[in-house]
């Protein structure tokens, strides 16, 4: 076990918790288009986000034992478990993003630290710094096509891929966990900007925001 100081960022005391988009819902609203909607937008807030850094071989062994997932070794790869709730994404040759259900991140971090021992690695809990926006519906790809500089055509962006690129003017991780769903991992500070951009860009598709 390394001697790094760690603590659980989720407190036991009853502090009212708001999602990064709480402000946006109040000020920009959450449109409901009903059955005519071609695009669904949903925030998956309060998930556990961990950044793993270190050598691929050491981390792969630890992640397979603790989480039961293989560390994706190929660039832009994204792997997830059967339920789709836990995922690991390649960010750079020595950096991976792990997303788990909210509340699981601290036990996971502790277990990984125990498993890795004195190996050369770093684990950062970035749960408070970013949030996940989920797009689904037939117009999702069309919306991305007019917003991001990356080629999101299925031939270039198959299921199981995730890239860090620019969404509008914000740095964003774009992932495709399944055929019809797209995920945007955005900074908390950019969440309102991205949300309002999405509402504006998706107005023509009759966006349906699920809260």
């Amino acid at each position: 076990m390394s001697n790094a100081a760690t603590f659980d960022t989720r407190t036991d005391t009853a502090i009212p918790v708001e999602s990064p988009l709480a402000y946006s819902y109040r000020h920009s609203g959450a449109p409901r288009a009903g059955d005519s909607s071609r695009l669904q937008l949903r925030e998956r807030a309060m998930l556990g986000h961990l950044i793993l850094r270190g050598g691929a071989i050491v981390l792969d062994e630890a992640v397979r034992d603790v989480l039961g997932l293989n560390l994706p070794g190929q660039p832009q790869a994204l792997v997830q478990d059967a339920s789709g709730e836990r995922s690991i994404q390649w960010l750079s040759p020595d950096e991976w993003l792990v997303i788990v259900p909210g509340g699981e991140e601290f036990p996971l971090e502790t277990k990984l630290r125990e498993h890795l021992g004195s190996a050369h690695f770093a684990i950062s809990d970035v749960s408070g710094g970013q949030t996940v926006l989920e797009l689904s519906g037939e117009a999702a790809q069309e919306l991305l096509m007019k917003t991001v500089i990356y080629d999101v055509h299925p031939s270039n962006f198959p299921v199981g891929k995730g890239v860090t690129t620019i969404f509008a003017k914000a740095t964003t991780i774009i992932r495709r966990p399944s055929e019809e769903r797209w995920e945007l991992v955005v900074r908390r500070s950019f969440a309102d900007y991205c949300y309002r951009w999405l509402l504006d860009a998706a107005a023509e598709y009759g966006v349906n925001v699920e809260q």
Binding site: P75, Q76, S92, P93, I149, Y150, V163, T165, I166
Partner: peptide, 12 residues
């Protein structure tokens, strides 16, 4: 060479 694909200049 690390991502193994072509990207727009805006990212660099």
């Amino acid at each position: 060479p690390y991502c193994g694909e072509h990207r727009e200049e805006e990212e660099f």
